[in-house]
Design a protein around this nucleic acid. Structure first.
Length: 288
DNA sequence: ATGCCTTAAGATTTAAGA
């Protein structure tokens, strides 16, 4: 099962990039953020194209800002929008939708930006993360939190830590809130897969930041232990950030092996017939 | 320049993003 997450920065503007990307990468589950579209407009815009590709849609949007969605062609059950009892600014915004896809509880999240450390929006960000934690905590064991968390987990996740001193995305309280979420047993599967690599998922549109590879890693796929154990590839699709009319974020793509089947027990390849696909496969981070 | 691009809304500009 291939799971991807992508902050598309307006799905309406990104249609010419999104549809070819779906055809190229063929993800089974797609978490989208910053769709910037009402649910009715989402369905009108993409319902036909996505249905033709076998996707069901769980969209949770609003007319102008924010907006998230889950697309799935491996089932889409028990859809929940928003965070029950969660904070708003002042009212709840369209920042999370969850659905069960292929046996995994998938949360597509767009964490508030925070704007300025200490601001009302910053405290809203921290409260929002705490509310997300409660939802995940009480949810199924097989879970993934995918999306734009608007936090660089470590200094290695920004191009220059000195450039971000005093800014959001790197402050200790934000990182602590993310660590609290991960303390539920969620693994940062891209970083776990590539512990020492320079990996970014967002590059500012301005000043040739992408060309110079000056970015941040703020789009994450977090997986609970039973899901993380199935990861066979985890990488950032930098290809999708190139060319004409890209989002300022690149997709993150994660491939999961089949769920263990109780009837067959642990799978051990016979020594005489090594499988081409057994074990973890080191895919290039960016197949340029 | 201290928001250098891009988006949306809707108006000749503003708010927002990270």
């Amino acid at each position: 099962m291939r799971v991807a997450t992508w902050n598309v920065n307006s799905v309406k503007q990104r249609v010419p990039r999104l549809l070819p990307w779906l055809d190229q990468r063929k993800p089974d589950v797609v978490c989208l953020q910053e769709t910037k579209l009402s649910d009715a407009a989402f369905t009108e815009l993409l319902g036909g194209e996505l249905a033709a590709r076998g996707y069901e849609i769980a969209a949770h949007g609003q007319p102008q800002w924010n907006g998230v969605a889950v697309l799935s062609r491996v089932g889409l059950d028990d859809v929940v929008t928003g965070l029950p009892g969660g904070p708003g600014f002042p009212h709840q915004e369209a920042r999370v939708v969850a659905a069960t896809c292929g046996g995994v509880r998938v949360h597509s999240v767009y964490v508030p930006n925070g704007r300025t450390p200490g601001s009302d929006h910053y405290h809203y960000k921290l409260a929002w993360l705490a509310a997300l934690r409660e939802v995940v905590k009480t949810g199924p064991r097989e879970a993934m939190v995918c999306g734009d968390v608007n936090i660089a987990p470590a200094d290695a996740d920004v191009f220059d830590p000195a450039a971000y001193v005093g800014s959001t995305h790197v402050t200790a309280p934000e990182r602590a809130a993310l660590a609290d979420l991960q303390a539920l047993g969620l693994h940062d599967v891209v970083r776990d897969r590539w512990p020492d690599n320079r990996i970014f998922t967002y590059w500012d549109y301005r000043a040739g930041m992408f060309h110079k590879d000056l970015g941040m890693r703020i789009d994450l796929v977090l997986a609970s232990t039973p899901v993380a154990e199935r990861v066979r590839a985890a990488w950032v699709d930098r290809q999708a950030r190139k060319g004409t009319g890209p989002s300022d974020h690149a997709p993150v793509i994660v491939d999961l092996d089949e769920a263990p089947d109780g009837d067959i027990g642990p799978v051990v390849p016979p020594p005489s017939a090594p499988s081409k696909r057994r074990g973890t496969v080191k895919l290039p981070q960016s197949p340029d």
